[in-house]
Nucleic acid binder design. Structure first.
Length: 290
DNA sequence: CGGAGTGTTAGTCG
DNA sequence: CCGACTAACACTCC
């Protein structure tokens, strides 16, 4: 579910509330997402203080006082939700699957307790997400596999042009390729192509310079705006405070299948598989090349 | 009611 | 190296 703006929102939220806190207890309700073996995982976290929270692409990295890192990948449906003591809800029955006022729920797999009584819940309906403890070297190796991080000084226009160079895959697939550009997922890839007026199946290498510049600008402006609005909640993304993101109000193509294009007011938003992923675009104003 | 589709990505195969 | 395709899982939608 969460892409760069959503993970960044969670990172910022969590930084405000758990930095400097000591983990006193680690409850593993389901071992599937825990990649280290439950006992090892708990030992690595017990009595450690959260020193810093970083992010690369859609991966969150919590630095521990031991010098190790807790990696958290939310994949499609993962959630990290923080609850402090005064808001703690006494256990009871579950309402809907995503009712965060009643944690833990049936998709809560791990609960961390902090010394001040607050708790952090890892929920993941589809169990694709993972939690992994790594040392600094292993962390750096994983970070090195990621491509350029948008909204940082690494991600310059020249870098972007270089990434697109000689790529015969559809531009959308390039945008989604985490080893080339970190953090863009299906929603933002479609939104970026729309904003740039580029048909998402166009081969990256066959785009002209003006289109590439438009794409570069769209990546920066859309991700920045999405972070400002705390991400997009389409189904089950929630911030660390259990709140929805508001960028859904600004989506131009995602979730607008068969609706009229906001820009040309002629086209009807189409949905076609491109690079194996459902892709929304306006067949009228997203230029088809070649 | 059954099958297709879902915001991710690691792994396989050609 | 590159790109296409699939599985992992549980739920919703048509």
């Amino acid at each position: 579910m969460p892409e760069l703006p959503e993970v960044e929102t969670i990172r910022r939220d969590l930084t405000k509330v758990i930095l400097g806190k000591k983990i006193t207890n680690i409850e593993v309700l389901h071992k599937a997402p825990v990649k280290d073996g439950v006992k090892k995982f708990q030992e690595a976290l017990k009595d450690k203080v959260i020193k810093k929270i970083d992010r690369v692409g859609k991966l969150m990295m919590l630095e521990l006082s031991s010098g190790n890192f807790l990696l958290v990948h939310l994949k499609m449906t993962g959630q990290l939700i923080y609850q402090n003591k005064k808001n703690l809800i006494a256990g009871g029955h579950s309402f809907s699957s995503f009712d965060i006022t009643d944690l833990p729920n049936k998709y809560t797999w791990v609960i961390w307790s902090f010394s001040d009584g607050s708790k952090l819940y890892f929920n993941d309906m589809r169990k694709f997400g993972y939690l992994k403890i790594v040392d600094k070297k292993q962390k750096e190796k994983i970070v090195a596999k990621y491509g350029a991080e948008p909204l940082t000084k690494i991600f310059t226009l020249n870098k972007f042009l270089e990434i697109l160079d000689k790529r015969n895959a559809p531009i959308k697939s390039v945008l989604l390729n985490q080893a080339l550009i970190a953090g863009i997922g299906n929603i933002y890839a479609d939104e970026v192509c729309f904003a740039a007026g580029v048909f998402p199946a166009t081969k990256a290498s066959s785009l002209d310079r003006a289109e590439k510049i438009k794409l570069f600008k769209a990546i920066n402006s859309i991700l920045k705006k999405a972070i400002k609005y705390k991400g997009t909640t389409f189904k089950n993304y929630l911030s660390a405070h259990g709140r929805k993101g508001n960028f859904a109000d600004f989506l131009q193509v995602y979730g607008r299948d068969k609706e009229k294009c906001f820009r040309c007011v002629q086209g009807v938003i189409a949905n076609k598989k491109i690079g194996g992923r459902s892709s929304r675009y306006c067949p009228v104003c997203q230029k088809v090349v070649g």
